[in-house]
């Protein structure tokens, strides 16, 4: 199962190899040309020499993770975050480390041993260590290396009302959507890029845009969703089950209105639900793609993802399928001569 395989694959920013291998296997039968660039983004082309609007779809392969930066005398591992991680969500989580995907746990001082005033304070990153079962520094050095990347050990599972949880829906859910889109026959010169290092500053997408020089670009993301508890409408960003979310403004992009209206019109005609992404926080690869060279017409479509950047992220499978339906309809519309600016 694609979502399971992709979300369980190991790929923090800068160490996306396993995800890339997996995607390459998936897309080779579906594409005319598959290549990588200097940073490691995977670029998949269909009909590269065809006439028509050159469309780029992009989803990032990387996930937030950790890096081992030191080993204590007692064999515990010190680490730092790769991408934005809130230290409060790390305590008492299993992780996997390095090339051998070795298990470890992030432990914490038991509550029995804490002073009352300690109990109200969040653990700081420096207080947290990974325990791999080694007793000494030497023993640990035989099992892991300084510099090894680390990811959460969460497994993909479906639960509740059409929900799924996994560690890296941000943005493997986008990667899965793009693989599904590649399965659809098209005559357009279509490029699908699986980018690297989005989580450490939108690094991979710029070189991809410069290389592929598309007329239109669409970024597919797993985005912030907080439609839970007592959050008010303007504090939720997106709601689960309400359809793919169209970006308006975020930290790096003011989205092109005409392109958004075009996507909305396709959704409405196909009776696919959609919603606005209702927050200006965060950013995605659109931030660098739309400013590449002389400027590229860009839109971002996102799958609402609860608890992003945490070990167990949650999506609604209807949103996933509706995103595939919507983008697939957008491709068909462009194929038939539709264009956001017309």
């Amino acid at each position: 199962m694609l979502l399971k395989a992709l979300t369980e694959a190991f790929g923090p920013s800068g160490f996306e190899d396993e995800v890339r291998h997996l995607l390459r296997e998936e897309v080779i039968p579906l594409a005319d040309r598959v290549s990588t660039d200097a940073l490691g983004s995977l670029i998949v082309e269909k009909n590269p020499d065809a006439e028509g609007s050159r469309v780029l779809f992009a989803a990032h392969m990387d996930e937030v993770g950790l890096m081992v930066v030191g080993i204590e005398d007692n064999g515990l591992l010190r680490f730092r975050p790769l991408g934005g991680v809130d230290p409060r969500i790390l305590v008492a989580k299993p992780v996997r480390i390095g090339a051998e995907r070795r298990y470890g746990v992030i432990g914490a001082k038991a509550i029995h041993l804490q002073q009352p005033e300690e109990r109200t304070k969040p653990f700081e990153m420096q207080q947290l260590l990974i325990d791999i079962g080694a007793n000494t520094r030497e023993e640990a050095e035989r099992l892991v290396e300084i510099g090894d990347p680390v990811v959460f050990a969460t497994e993909y599972e479906e639960f509740g009302d059409r929900r799924a949880k996994a560690k890296s829906f941000d943005d493997r859910v986008g990667c899965a959507v793009l693989v599904e889109l590649l399965k659809q026959p098209t005559t357009l010169p279509l490029t699908v890029a699986f980018t690297v290092q989005e989580e450490t500053g939108l690094r991979g997408a710029g070189p991809v845009a410069y290389r592929t020089k598309p007329d239109l670009a669409m970024v597919v993301e797993g985005t912030v969703c907080f439609d839970v508890g007592e959050a008010k409408s303007h504090e939720q960003s997106t709601a689960q089950g309400a359809g793919p979310a169209l970006s308006v403004v975020d930290g790096k992009t003011i989205a092109n209105t005409k392109f958004r209206e075009f996507i909305k019109s396709v959704a409405d005609e196909e009776a696919i639900p959609w919603q606005y992404r209702r927050t200006v926080g965060g950013a995605n690869d659109a931030g660098v793609i739309h400013l590449s060279e002389m400027g590229i017409l860009t839109a971002a479509v996102s799958i609402p993802t609860r608890y992003i950047h945490a070990p167990a992220q949650v999506i609604h499978l209807d949103d996933y399928h509706n995103t595939i339906r919507l983008l697939s309809a957008v491709i068909e519309r462009i194929e038939k001569g539709g264009h956001p600016i017309s």
């Binding site: 303007h234 308006v248 403004v249 003011i254 209702r278 200006v280």
Partner: peptide, 17 residues
């Protein structure tokens, strides 16, 4: 400013540009 949400009473929620 840009509108990020419209509440039930018709007040607009905003973010800065």
């Amino acid at each position: 400013v840009t509108v990020v949400d419209i509440d039930d009473e018709g007040f607009l929620r905003i973010a800065p540009l």
